[in-house]
Design a binder for these strands. Structure first.
Length: 300
DNA sequence: GAAAAGTACCGGTTTACGTCA
DNA sequence: ACTGACGTAAACCGGTACTTT
């Protein structure tokens, strides 16, 4: 895979020239569950109990939907091989089922859904996997835990599973799916943002192309060319090719006459010629036409 | 250091379930 | 009441990356 963006950390940097404070910015939804806390890359996993500690350990004081002290609860599960990703109901799954300890599933078998009875631990006679919808309370607790941290270490998984009356594998799957959902949502938002940026750039491009066309047309008709109001976009010194400011006012034109002399003069770094203002057209600083539009133009 | 095993995660897919017309 | 389409979410599969032995 390589990128290992770990779901929420979608690093789509949308720096396509969109101004950061434009409307697009407000479009960006805060789908990152923990934006200030980068998702733990599983290559450098930090033990959850180091970075995810609930401040209040008094569980009785909280609702059951808030803040499991997994470090305490995990003690109950300590004896079970913690980190085995238990497969679930499917007896058809091959390699995962092989390493699934069957014994500890009995308790969590009932997922407080009405279908729990025919679950048969996934190894019974029913070959079809039964999908057990989580209850509202289970989902709430899972969501709450996910907001605290979107990955679980084995201990946390065990404890959460214990609290939820689920299998650890179910908790693991839920977290995986939840990360995938979050990433998908973030991707959708990013796509929308990119789309807007693209539309804006397309519009800018269209406008600039139109302006270029107008300028080319005007250059072919010198009379109009001299009477034209200055261009709204960039101008350039013909010799040094330095870009001047846009629209030339009279004073700016005078300044431009001193810094960007027309008629083949270069803008030498000398004292500006203030005594002899050169009457130039506002187009005097047009960019050099390196590729003549009309190669058959008179050369004199 | 190389190889194998174990583990955790991810993307993609399958499938059960709930809803609605 | 039944049914089929559809969306959602639970579960699975194969692969990758990393650690441990």
């Amino acid at each position: 895979m390589g990128e290992k963006d770990d779901g929420l950390g979608l690093g789509l940097s949308l720096s396509l020239g969109c101004k950061p404070n434009e409307n697009e910015s407000s479009l960006r939804l805060n789908l990152m569950e923990k934006p200030s806390q980068p998702m733990q890359n599983h290559q450098h996993r930090t033990p959850w109990n180091e970075i995810f500690q609930f401040p209040d350990r008094n569980q009785d004081a909280r609702s059951c939907l808030r803040g499991i002290d997994v470090n305490q609860a995990a003690d109950f599960e300590e004896e079970n091989g913690v980190s085995s990703p238990n497969s679930t109901v499917s007896s058809l799954s091959g390699k995962r089922s092989e390493r699934e300890p069957i014994g500890d599933e009995n308790e969590a078998e009932r997922t407080s859904c009405s279908h729990g009875s025919d679950d048969e631990d996934g190894n019974g006679g029913d070959l079809s996997r039964k999908k057990l919808r989580l209850t509202k309370e289970q989902s709430l607790l899972l969501e709450d835990t996910f907001k605290e941290h979107n990955t679980l270490n084995p201990r946390q998984k065990q404890a959460l599973a214990k609290q939820l009356n689920l299998r650890p594998r179910q908790v693991e799957v839920w977290f995986q799916n939840r990360r995938a959902r979050t990433k998908l949502k973030q991707t959708e938002v990013d796509c929308e943002l990119l789309k807007r940026c693209c539309e804006k750039l397309t519009e800018d491009n269209r406008r600039l192309q139109k302006e270029v066309q107008e300028l080319r047309a005007l250059k072919l008709s010198p009379q109009l060319y001299m009477q034209m109001s200055p261009p709204t976009t960039l101008t350039m010194c013909p010799s040094c090719e330095r870009v001047a400011v846009s629209s030339l006012s009279s004073s700016a034109a005078a300044a431009a006459s001193s810094t960007s002399p027309a008629n083949g003069q270069t803008c030498q770094s000398g004292p500006p010629n203030v005594q002899r203002p050169i009457p130039i057209s506002p187009w005097a600083t047009l960019p050099i036409q390196r590729r003549p539009l009309d190669a058959s133009a008179p050369k004199s």
